[in-house]
Design a protein around this nucleic acid. Sequence first.
DNA 1: GCTGCCGGGTT
DNA 2: AACCCGGCAGC
Length: 548
Amino acid sequence: MHTRRLVKRSILGSRVYAPSPTGDGAPLTGVVQAVKQENRDVSTGPLRNVYTLLMQDGSLKEFSEDEIAVGFSQTTAKGPLKSSLKQSFCNGRGDGTPHQGQNGEANSLSPDAVEGERAVDGRRTGRTLEGPERDHTRSVSLLDQKRKVVSSSIDVPHARKSEEEVDMDKVTAAMVLTSLSSSPLVRSPPVKVSEGLNGSWKESGVGFTPSSYSSSGYWSWSGPSDQSNPSTPSPPLSADCFKPFRMSSVNGPPPDDAIDEQDGSSLLFDEPIPRKRKNSMKVMFKCLWKNCGKVLSTAAGIQRHIRTVHLGRNCDSDCSDGEEDFYYSEIKLNTDSVADGLSSLSPVSPSVLAPISPPHDHHRRPPAEGSNGTNGNKDNHSHTHSNSTPLSRSAPSALYLIHAEHAYQATAPVTIPFSGSGSGPGPGSAASGSAASGSAASGSAASGSAASTSFTPSSSSTFSISWQSPPVTFTGTAASPTHSRTQSFGEQRSQTIAVLSSPPRATGSLSRKSRGEGKKCRKVYGMENRDMWCTACRWKKACQRFTD
DNA sequence: GCTGCCGGGTT
DNA sequence: AACCCGGCAGC
């Protein structure tokens, strides 16, 4: 069944021989408690494994894989340990290619099992591709062929089989029991993983951990999350990790079971994907530096941009202190909504958008920037007190533009009119203003007129009513900022989808067909004669019979 | 609260 | 495409 896990688990808890610390040549025995990966020399590339051993005297010591030898096969000393531990389960550095994983697996399987795996592999790949990767079927099937060629051309070490067989039998028995008890864990993550493939790869990384190493506190798993910037997306990684994992998960059982489980998991995997794709989310990274707003598709790119352009550092990421992280934000773009929003917004007020960018810039500039606060205050005051026109123009569009940012930043436009009359604006006070405004808005959000009354006293009397009409949008989204104030950033971010989709809706409401005043089927025929209604009325659509 | 109807889901 | 329904917004 879980061949990889089997291999991994066979190491943890294994008795190994380690060199004596005193160097007198008498090896000590220890039990592998944990494994971690270390990159001793960046230039030499691949990671090496460092094993934490519980020594006989109860102490914990770390040894590199070169230093220790496996206890159960003393004659082969280092060899088996290193090779078996070298099963690079997609360790995220690129050296865990599917081929390697494949071969590693084959090493610990009988030739028959390898054949079985190939067959399953072939079916599995095809099946998987029926889903989201349908478009790449050809290239992947080529890959698949290539994989077959590779694995068939590599000698499966038969000799090792007998050597490991004894140990494997024991461990396999344990694994069968373990897998029975942990199967829910194994099966449930796929849902998560499939989400991860579409949305955040991080989730997929996390999703693997419990299923792959569900026991024994295997803390050394250096998945994507702990070796790269958390905000650095790496979809191919999760995809690559994902496939071998799934293949390995169906290796153990007899073919029939494998197919069944395969089908089951295929359902689990494939089903949510089409739905998710509807949202077609795209993660971008936006520079928050004043007057920049550069948007890049990769975190590394935006970091480099900030480092070089704004922070004036020319060195590469090595000398980064992570400061760049403060200057960019992750944007989840709902491409559909954004496209709709832009297309529907621009005809309404095309001239409004352009001059707005500077003001909206103030709200989202990083707090770390020195001049930020004062400028922001100035501008906000000028907006709120001196002239109503810029505000009346900027508010709706600023609202929209900020929607492209973190959801929590959407609190800013809400607070503009409120905080302006109160204490100084700026990020901090704006938030407090938002609390007040939030409660006010949410309390009266039911109707636009009520919202406008709550505006009037706090804002200057120069406000024109024209400001209020767009807030059809405003009241619609008012709940969101209010809400988000008590949320964590993660939750707020997930809200971005909803927030992003609101502008189109707002503009949609502008184009919403005004309510028909004439008689409608419902009025004419009444509820009791519902079957006499026009179909549109029956379907709660615009009446087609009594058009106004 | 009633009503018209939009948006989206299901069959 | 037909059908259904939640929910918004005007009245």
